[in-house]
């Protein structure tokens, strides 16, 4: 290794660091701008050259409760709904993916890819008739109705991803457990699940985020009782009085914070996230 090689390596390092800092700045700046606005630090139009209004205040967070008195309730609804739907999605997806991974079916890769196709079907493609179906089942504007309809949205994606974790697993352990007389569900819970637990947790985090952020589906399946935070935000943005930017920014930060915390806590687990089978 000569000096030239080291110089090139050093130069590469500097360029990479600079590019990364640039990227982070571009992607994060809008969020910093929003966070500042939520604390009342906004550009002062009257000043020239432009300046910021000071001092920061938390009044805008209190203002959310005035603009949308049921905001706390909606936060709870979103939290409960996202947790239930995530558990349901992972359960049905895991069972189906295991079934597929352990079938002798020759074209099972194709079946797994068809789940990906279902996963890429946008909600708008079927939400108009779905509204009818849910009313017919008398589940409109109920927790169960919204939860089941949301589960259907990301269950195909979860199945596809979990299939990617399950299909490369060696059969050894399962066979050994079965020879010891374990029943299939016991094998699943005590042998298979521990082997892929961190992957399943990563998928659960992603599914939680996706559900928390769903808008069109809860908008159509509810009228007033099961109002999620996204529906609430669209309400007070579009229908009610002209919304002030600092209040909107505060609501935005509140709706983002749980996800940011979740992802920060789960970052080690998320490093194991794999989309699709590793061949």
């Amino acid at each position: 290794m000569d000096a030239g090689w080291w110089a090139a390596r050093r130069r590469g390092f500097v360029i990479r660091t600079a590019l990364l800092i640039g990227c982070v700045a571009i992607f994060i700046l809008p969020l910093i701008w929003t966070a500042l606005a939520s604390f009342g630090v906004v550009p002062d139009e009257t000043a020239s050259p432009p300046a910021w209004t000071f001092p920061p205040t938390t009044a805008n967070y209190a203002e959310i409760g005035i603009a949308e008195p049921t905001f706390a309730q909606e936060l709870l609804t979103s939290t409960g709904l996202s947790i239930v739907v995530t558990l349901l999605t992972i359960t049905v997806g895991f069972l189906a993916a295991y079934s597929l991974a352990r079938s002798g079916f020759r074209r099972k890769r194709l079946v797994a890819q068809s789940f990906l196709l279902l996963a890429s079907m946008p909600v708008m493609a079927y939400v108009i008739p779905l509204n009818d179906t849910v009313r017919f089942l008398r589940l409109h504007d109920t927790f169960v109705g919204v939860a089941l309809a949301q589960t259907a949205v990301y269950a195909p994606l979860a199945t596809f991803i979990l299939y990617g974790y399950l299909s490369p697993l060696s059969l050894e352990w399962e066979e050994a457990a079965r020879l010891d007389g374990a029943r299939p569900l016991q094998v699943l819970a005590h042998v298979v699940l521990p082997l892929v637990a961190s992957g399943v947790a990563a998928v659960a985090v992603i599914v939680f985020v996706l559900n928390w952020n769903l808008f069109l589906l809860p908008l159509v399946i509810q009228t007033s009782h099961i109002k999620t935070i996204t529906v609430a935000m669209s309400d007070f943005f579009t229908f009610e009085r002209e919304l002030e930017w600092p209040t909107a920014a505060a609501a935005l930060i509140v709706s983002l914070a749980p996800l940011a915390v979740l992802v920060a806590v789960a970052h080690r687990v998320l490093e194991g996230f794999r989309l699709g089978a590793v061949e």
């Binding site: 992607f27 809008p30 969020l31 996204t230 909107a248 709706s255 940011a260 992802v263």
Partner: peptide, 21 residues
Amino acid sequence: RVVILLPWLVSPLASGVMWHF
């Protein structure tokens, strides 16, 4: 890796509100 994922955590709807302003 976590910090750079932040924009995706903003829901499409909230991102609409944010960029409006």
